[in-house]
């Protein structure tokens, strides 16, 4: 039984088709990673799953009463609102100090309670966002580039934490990542997205798939593959607005 099942999902934003016929299912306890170049619709797919963008075609089925945790790629924070981390974690439901401290520790953000959210560093904010997502005891955790802004040891320990979490709570994790080298070792399944699903499967399978190589170069799935990415993708969904730096 899947937690969510996406069938033939198409999404249009601003008159452009961003996702086209995407199929996807997540089972309990799975760690699934979405990779793809900038502008390939990874964030849009996660936003469609939480219900923030409407589907132009296709369906998204959720298991009844599914508890979602969502860590967005960026937060539209406005410094005009004074908001401590502690207040932020109390939205939309107040939590006990014990729960709060546990979630912050689990996300590696212990001791940030009294800091202003708008004044956190990028990496600290990511950890706080993860802590907030954990408070809802999610069965499915959606992470959109949750390791951006984390230094390398922190990113590594972040993935370890995610794995521990999965092992402890049985939560499934669907994450977007550009860190191909880590992704390959930390995921059960990889989905390569470029407007549509180019290829999907076990990390080794995906890494050797021609579609994947077309997108990320012929490296062994190392981080450098991304930097060698060129506009030689065979599909007609060439929507890379910008290349990876």
């Amino acid at each position: 039984m899947s937690l969510i099942r996406v069938r033939g999902l198409s999404v249009s934003l601003g008159g452009r088709r961003v996702l086209d016929g995407v199929d996807l299912a997540i089972a309990p306890g799975e760690i699934v990673t979405i990779v793809g170049p900038n502008g390939s619709g990874k964030s849009t797919l996660l936003r469609a799953i939480i219900g923030a963008v409407p589907a132009a075609a296709g369906t998204i089925e959720r298991q009844g009463g599914l508890r979602l945790g969502y860590v967005p790629q960026k937060l539209a924070l406005d410094a005009s609102m004074p908001l401590k981390v502690r207040h932020f974690l109390d939205l939309p439901r107040p939590v006990s100090p014990g729960e709060r401290a546990r979630a912050l520790d689990e996300a590696g953000a212990g001791g940030l309670e009294e800091r202003q959210l708008a004044a956190l560093s990028g990496g600290q904010l990511q950890r706080v966002l993860l802590a907030r997502a954990l408070l809802g005891r999610p069965q499915l955790l959606l992470l959109d580039e949750a390791t951006q802004g984390l230094d390398q040891p922190a990113a590594a320990s972040f993935y370890r934490r995610i794995e521990t979490l999965r092992n402890r709570t049985g939560a499934a994790i669907l994450m977007v990542s550009h860190e191909l080298h880590v992704v390959m070792s930390a995921s059960d399944r990889v989905i390569c997205l470029n407007g549509h699903v180019c290829c999907a499967g076990k990390p080794e399978q995906v890494a050797s798939a021609p579609e994947y190589r077309a997108l990320f170069g012929t490296g062994t799935g190392g981080a450098l593959a991304l930097y060698r990415h060129e506009h030689d993708h065979a599909h007609d969904h060439d929507r890379h607005g910008e290349q990876a730096p």
Binding site: I50, A52, L77, M81, L91, P92
Partner: peptide
Amino acid sequence: WRALLLSAVDEDLAIASGL
């Protein structure tokens, strides 16, 4: 209060929380 607040902080987070 809390629903208004979370919606003002980030609409996607509010949606993900069922608001």
